[in-house]
């Protein structure tokens, strides 16, 4: 069978589908000072599955941690229109489970084009393999 670390090089999704892959990628992102990208991506996935009674509080938590501060790595990568859409959603008593989907897509594209290829070329990944 294909070793997991070779699968990680197939796509970002293959990497994020494996616990060890996530750990190594997160270590790399920490070194680069942008681990929040990955945490935010998972927070968006978790948000969709969160029960309705916790959703409003969680939406605020995600918004405060990653979006409201415009100098943060996540906030800087999300389009102004997307941030303004999230700002409108976050004040509702029953936020839409899909309210972070566009932002998640934008962060995912950024990782696919930038941090993920850099990770595959990094010493960290090469030493691991």
């Amino acid at each position: 069978p294909t070793p997991p670390y070779l699968k990680w090089a197939e796509s970002l999704h293959s990497l994020l589908d494996d616990q060890e892959g996530i750990q190594l990628f997160r270590t790399f992102l920490c070194q680069e000072g942008c681990a929040d990208l990955l945490d935010f991506w998972f927070a968006c996935s978790g948000f969709r599955k969160t029960s309705q009674e916790k959703r409003a509080k969680l939406a605020k938590a995600i918004y405060r941690k990653y979006i409201v501060d415009g100098s943060g790595i996540v906030s800087r990568q999300i389009k102004a229109a997307t941030k303004s859409f999230i700002r409108d959603c976050v004040v509702r008593p029953h936020p839409d489970p899909a309210m972070f989907e566009q932002a998640q897509t934008e962060i995912q594209s950024m990782m696919e084009e930038n941090t993920y290829p850099l990770f595959l070329k990094s010493d960290l990944y090469l030493e691991y393999t």
């Binding site: 494996d18 616990q19 927070a43 978790g46 969160t50 969680l58 405060r64």
Partner: peptide
Amino acid sequence: MDSEDDLLQKCITSAMPKQR
């Protein structure tokens, strides 16, 4: 009652794949 940070951390963990 969970703090916002706990809630967020649980949310992130819940979205990650389980151990292979």
